[in-house]
Nucleic acid binder design. Sequence first.
DNA 1: ATGGTGGTTAGACCA
Length: 271
Amino acid sequence: MPKTLSVTSWNINSVRLRIESVVRFLHEAQPDFLCLQETKTPDDAFPAHAFTKAGYPHHAFIGMKGYNGVAIVAREPFRKLEAREMCGKPDARHIAVEIGEGAGAIQLHNFYVPAGGDLADPDENPKFAHKLSFVEELRQFSEKLRGSQPRAVLVGDLNIAPLEHDVWSHKQLLDVVSHTPVETDGLKAVMQEGEWCDAFRVLKPEPEKVYSWWSYRSPDWAAADKGRRLDHIWLGRSLKDQIVSGEIRKETRGWERPSDHVPITLTIARD
DNA sequence: ATGGTGGTTAGACCA
Protein backbone atom coordinates (compact mmCIF):
# COMPACT_ATOMS: atom_id res chain seq x y z
CA MET A 1 0.00 0.00 0.00
CA PRO A 2 1.38 3.44 -0.88
CA LYS A 3 2.15 5.85 1.94
CA THR A 4 -0.04 8.59 0.50
CA LEU A 5 -3.64 8.76 -0.69
CA SER A 6 -4.55 11.06 -3.56
CA VAL A 7 -8.15 11.94 -4.36
CA THR A 8 -9.45 13.95 -7.31
CA SER A 9 -12.84 15.65 -7.57
CA TRP A 10 -14.08 16.65 -11.03
CA ASN A 11 -17.47 17.72 -12.34
CA ILE A 12 -17.17 16.15 -15.78
CA ASN A 13 -20.50 17.28 -17.30
CA SER A 14 -21.16 13.96 -19.08
CA VAL A 15 -18.66 11.16 -18.48
CA ARG A 16 -19.56 9.50 -21.78
CA LEU A 17 -18.93 12.59 -23.89
CA ARG A 18 -15.63 13.30 -22.15
CA ILE A 19 -14.32 9.79 -21.44
CA GLU A 20 -11.19 10.44 -23.53
CA SER A 21 -10.39 13.54 -21.48
CA VAL A 22 -10.93 11.62 -18.26
CA VAL A 23 -8.58 8.85 -19.37
CA ARG A 24 -5.99 11.43 -20.43
CA PHE A 25 -6.22 13.04 -17.01
CA LEU A 26 -5.85 9.68 -15.24
CA HIS A 27 -2.72 8.87 -17.26
CA GLU A 28 -1.20 12.26 -16.48
CA ALA A 29 -2.18 12.72 -12.84
CA GLN A 30 -2.65 9.12 -11.64
CA PRO A 31 -4.73 9.84 -8.54
CA ASP A 32 -5.61 6.85 -6.37
CA PHE A 33 -9.30 7.81 -6.40
CA LEU A 34 -11.30 9.82 -8.91
CA CYS A 35 -14.65 11.25 -7.83
CA LEU A 36 -16.88 12.48 -10.65
CA GLN A 37 -20.05 14.56 -10.63
CA GLU A 38 -22.61 15.17 -13.36
CA THR A 39 -21.89 11.88 -15.07
CA LYS A 40 -25.32 12.19 -16.78
CA THR A 41 -25.26 8.46 -17.42
CA PRO A 42 -27.62 5.63 -16.44
CA ASP A 43 -25.85 2.77 -14.64
CA ASP A 44 -26.16 0.36 -17.56
CA ALA A 45 -24.32 2.83 -19.80
CA PHE A 46 -21.48 3.77 -17.40
CA PRO A 47 -18.16 3.44 -19.27
CA ALA A 48 -16.68 1.01 -16.73
CA HIS A 49 -14.50 -0.77 -19.27
CA ALA A 50 -12.66 2.42 -20.24
CA PHE A 51 -11.74 3.00 -16.59
CA THR A 52 -10.60 -0.58 -16.12
CA LYS A 53 -8.45 -0.29 -19.24
CA ALA A 54 -6.95 2.94 -17.86
CA GLY A 55 -5.84 1.13 -14.69
CA TYR A 56 -8.91 1.90 -12.59
CA PRO A 57 -10.78 -1.41 -12.26
CA HIS A 58 -12.81 -0.57 -9.14
CA HIS A 59 -16.02 1.41 -9.64
CA ALA A 60 -18.95 2.73 -7.67
CA PHE A 61 -21.53 4.76 -9.56
CA ILE A 62 -25.10 5.90 -9.40
CA GLY A 63 -26.63 7.69 -12.32
CA MET A 64 -29.78 8.66 -14.14
CA LYS A 65 -30.75 9.54 -17.67
CA GLY A 66 -29.54 12.98 -18.68
CA TYR A 67 -29.09 14.62 -15.27
CA ASN A 68 -26.86 14.50 -12.20
CA GLY A 69 -25.03 11.27 -11.39
CA VAL A 70 -21.87 10.63 -9.32
CA ALA A 71 -19.10 8.04 -9.48
CA ILE A 72 -15.95 6.93 -7.68
CA VAL A 73 -13.29 4.96 -9.57
CA ALA A 74 -10.07 3.65 -8.07
CA ARG A 75 -6.88 1.72 -8.64
CA GLU A 76 -7.37 -0.20 -5.40
CA PRO A 77 -10.35 -2.10 -3.97
CA PHE A 78 -12.83 -0.41 -1.65
CA ARG A 79 -16.05 -1.15 0.15
CA LYS A 80 -19.18 0.53 -1.17
CA LEU A 81 -21.20 2.44 1.39
CA GLU A 82 -24.84 3.41 1.18
CA ALA A 83 -25.62 6.07 -1.43
CA ARG A 84 -27.73 8.67 0.36
CA GLU A 85 -30.99 9.87 -1.10
CA MET A 86 -30.76 13.58 -0.33
CA CYS A 87 -33.90 15.69 0.24
CA GLY A 88 -36.04 12.61 -0.41
CA LYS A 89 -35.23 12.74 -4.13
CA PRO A 90 -33.72 9.79 -6.02
CA ASP A 91 -31.51 12.09 -8.07
CA ALA A 92 -28.08 10.50 -7.64
CA ARG A 93 -26.20 13.27 -5.86
CA HIS A 94 -24.16 11.21 -3.37
CA ILE A 95 -22.01 8.13 -3.37
CA ALA A 96 -19.51 6.90 -0.79
CA VAL A 97 -16.88 4.22 -0.28
CA GLU A 98 -14.64 3.02 2.54
CA ILE A 99 -10.92 2.76 1.91
CA GLY A 100 -8.69 0.41 3.93
CA GLU A 101 -9.47 -1.73 6.94
CA GLY A 102 -10.19 -1.47 10.65
CA ALA A 103 -9.28 1.58 12.70
CA GLY A 104 -7.37 3.12 9.79
CA ALA A 105 -10.31 2.96 7.38
CA ILE A 106 -11.22 6.18 5.62
CA GLN A 107 -14.68 7.07 4.37
CA LEU A 108 -14.80 8.98 1.08
CA HIS A 109 -18.02 10.87 0.36
CA ASN A 110 -18.70 12.39 -3.06
CA PHE A 111 -21.49 14.99 -3.29
CA TYR A 112 -23.10 16.97 -6.10
CA VAL A 113 -25.00 19.88 -4.55
CA PRO A 114 -27.86 21.32 -6.66
CA ALA A 115 -26.82 24.41 -8.64
CA GLY A 116 -29.91 26.28 -7.44
CA GLY A 117 -31.17 28.06 -10.56
CA ASP A 118 -30.81 31.77 -11.29
CA LEU A 119 -32.99 33.56 -8.73
CA ALA A 120 -31.64 33.66 -5.16
CA ASP A 121 -35.06 33.54 -3.52
CA PRO A 122 -36.36 30.25 -2.07
CA ASP A 123 -39.97 31.49 -2.13
CA GLU A 124 -39.89 32.25 -5.85
CA ASN A 125 -37.38 29.63 -7.01
CA PRO A 126 -37.90 25.99 -5.98
CA LYS A 127 -34.42 25.07 -7.23
CA PHE A 128 -32.87 27.52 -4.78
CA ALA A 129 -35.09 26.17 -1.98
CA HIS A 130 -33.86 22.67 -2.87
CA LYS A 131 -30.25 23.84 -2.70
CA LEU A 132 -30.73 25.36 0.76
CA SER A 133 -32.48 22.20 2.00
CA PHE A 134 -29.64 20.10 0.61
CA VAL A 135 -27.05 22.20 2.44
CA GLU A 136 -29.04 21.87 5.68
CA GLU A 137 -29.15 18.09 5.20
CA LEU A 138 -25.40 18.14 4.60
CA ARG A 139 -25.01 19.93 7.92
CA GLN A 140 -26.99 17.25 9.75
CA PHE A 141 -25.06 14.52 7.97
CA SER A 142 -21.75 16.18 8.95
CA GLU A 143 -22.78 16.24 12.59
CA LYS A 144 -23.40 12.49 12.55
CA LEU A 145 -20.21 11.73 10.67
CA ARG A 146 -18.10 13.88 13.00
CA GLY A 147 -19.18 11.70 15.91
CA SER A 148 -19.03 8.31 14.21
CA GLN A 149 -16.19 8.54 11.69
CA PRO A 150 -13.77 11.46 11.91
CA ARG A 151 -11.48 9.71 9.39
CA ALA A 152 -13.54 11.02 6.50
CA VAL A 153 -12.98 12.89 3.27
CA LEU A 154 -15.82 14.88 1.71
CA VAL A 155 -15.40 16.00 -1.88
CA GLY A 156 -17.55 17.30 -4.64
CA ASP A 157 -19.11 20.02 -6.67
CA LEU A 158 -20.74 21.89 -3.80
CA ASN A 159 -21.84 24.70 -6.15
CA ILE A 160 -20.99 27.31 -3.50
CA ALA A 161 -17.93 29.56 -3.38
CA PRO A 162 -17.85 30.27 0.37
CA LEU A 163 -15.02 32.80 0.75
CA GLU A 164 -14.42 36.30 -0.56
CA HIS A 165 -11.47 35.18 -2.68
CA ASP A 166 -13.27 32.11 -4.03
CA VAL A 167 -14.81 34.39 -6.68
CA TRP A 168 -13.39 36.94 -9.09
CA SER A 169 -15.46 39.77 -7.56
CA HIS A 170 -16.97 39.35 -4.12
CA LYS A 171 -19.08 42.51 -4.42
CA GLN A 172 -20.41 41.75 -7.88
CA LEU A 173 -21.39 38.19 -6.96
CA LEU A 174 -23.09 38.81 -3.61
CA ASP A 175 -26.52 38.40 -5.22
CA VAL A 176 -25.45 35.73 -7.70
CA VAL A 177 -26.43 32.15 -6.84
CA SER A 178 -23.29 30.32 -5.60
CA HIS A 179 -22.01 33.26 -3.54
CA THR A 180 -25.05 34.73 -1.75
CA PRO A 181 -24.74 35.14 2.04
CA VAL A 182 -27.46 32.56 2.76
CA GLU A 183 -25.47 29.97 0.79
CA THR A 184 -22.01 30.86 2.04
CA ASP A 185 -23.28 31.01 5.65
CA GLY A 186 -24.97 27.65 5.11
CA LEU A 187 -21.82 26.03 3.81
CA LYS A 188 -19.76 27.51 6.66
CA ALA A 189 -22.29 25.99 9.10
CA VAL A 190 -21.75 22.60 7.44
CA MET A 191 -17.99 23.00 7.85
CA GLN A 192 -18.33 24.00 11.49
CA GLU A 193 -20.76 21.18 12.31
CA GLY A 194 -18.50 18.54 10.77
CA GLU A 195 -15.26 20.14 11.95
CA TRP A 196 -14.29 19.90 8.30
CA CYS A 197 -10.95 21.23 7.16
CA ASP A 198 -11.01 23.05 3.81
CA ALA A 199 -7.81 21.46 2.50
CA PHE A 200 -7.18 23.77 -0.45
CA ARG A 201 -7.48 26.85 1.77
CA VAL A 202 -4.86 25.36 4.11
CA LEU A 203 -2.58 25.08 1.10
CA LYS A 204 -3.63 28.41 -0.49
CA PRO A 205 -4.87 30.76 2.24
CA GLU A 206 -6.81 33.91 1.43
CA PRO A 207 -6.35 36.44 -0.10
CA GLU A 208 -5.03 34.23 -2.91
CA LYS A 209 -7.71 33.77 -5.57
CA VAL A 210 -8.55 30.09 -6.10
CA TYR A 211 -11.00 28.90 -8.77
CA SER A 212 -12.15 25.52 -10.07
CA TRP A 213 -14.85 26.64 -12.53
CA TRP A 214 -15.06 29.06 -15.44
CA SER A 215 -18.39 29.62 -17.20
CA TYR A 216 -18.94 28.38 -20.76
CA ARG A 217 -20.62 31.70 -21.42
CA SER A 218 -17.45 33.72 -21.23
CA PRO A 219 -16.04 34.12 -24.76
CA ASP A 220 -12.45 34.23 -23.51
CA TRP A 221 -12.48 32.46 -20.17
CA ALA A 222 -8.71 32.51 -19.65
CA ALA A 223 -8.21 36.23 -20.34
CA ALA A 224 -11.31 37.26 -18.39
CA ASP A 225 -10.51 34.78 -15.58
CA LYS A 226 -13.91 35.28 -13.97
CA GLY A 227 -13.77 32.02 -12.08
CA ARG A 228 -15.33 30.61 -8.94
CA ARG A 229 -14.20 27.91 -6.47
CA LEU A 230 -17.21 25.59 -6.52
CA ASP A 231 -15.36 22.29 -6.04
CA HIS A 232 -14.00 21.28 -2.68
CA ILE A 233 -12.06 18.62 -0.77
CA TRP A 234 -12.64 18.58 2.97
CA LEU A 235 -10.93 16.49 5.63
CA GLY A 236 -12.43 15.19 8.86
CA ARG A 237 -10.65 16.16 12.06
CA SER A 238 -8.53 12.99 12.23
CA LEU A 239 -7.05 13.66 8.79
CA LYS A 240 -6.52 17.40 8.79
CA ASP A 241 -2.88 17.15 9.91
CA GLN A 242 -2.03 14.77 7.06
CA ILE A 243 -2.15 17.14 4.08
CA VAL A 244 0.76 16.62 1.68
CA SER A 245 -0.12 18.63 -1.44
CA GLY A 246 -2.88 19.84 -3.71
CA GLU A 247 -3.21 20.50 -7.40
CA ILE A 248 -5.77 22.30 -9.56
CA ARG A 249 -5.41 21.28 -13.21
CA LYS A 250 -6.51 24.54 -14.77
CA GLU A 251 -5.09 23.56 -18.14
CA THR A 252 -7.88 21.02 -18.67
CA ARG A 253 -10.27 23.97 -19.11
CA GLY A 254 -8.35 24.70 -22.31
CA TRP A 255 -8.63 21.16 -23.66
CA GLU A 256 -10.87 20.45 -26.62
CA ARG A 257 -14.55 20.24 -25.59
CA PRO A 258 -13.77 20.91 -21.91
CA SER A 259 -15.89 20.58 -18.83
CA ASP A 260 -16.57 23.98 -17.27
CA HIS A 261 -15.04 22.55 -14.05
CA VAL A 262 -11.41 21.45 -13.68
CA PRO A 263 -10.10 18.53 -11.62
CA ILE A 264 -8.76 19.27 -8.13
CA THR A 265 -6.49 16.70 -6.47
CA LEU A 266 -5.47 16.43 -2.83
CA THR A 267 -2.75 14.14 -1.52
CA ILE A 268 -2.69 13.14 2.15
CA ALA A 269 -0.53 10.79 4.23
CA ARG A 270 -2.31 7.47 4.79
CA ASP A 271 -1.44 7.39 8.49
C1' DA B 1 -27.55 45.51 -19.69
C1' DT B 2 -30.14 40.10 -19.35
C1' DG B 3 -27.45 37.47 -22.98
C1' DG B 4 -23.86 34.73 -23.41
C1' DT B 5 -22.43 28.55 -24.20
C1' DG B 6 -22.84 23.64 -23.54
C1' DG B 7 -25.11 18.57 -22.66
C1' DT B 8 -28.96 15.61 -23.23
C1' DT B 9 -32.00 14.48 -26.35
C1' DA B 10 -35.55 15.62 -29.71
C1' DG B 11 -38.66 20.29 -27.27
C1' DA B 12 -37.41 21.63 -23.29
C1' DC B 13 -34.71 21.33 -19.27
C1' DC B 14 -30.63 21.93 -16.78
C1' DA B 15 -26.04 23.81 -15.75
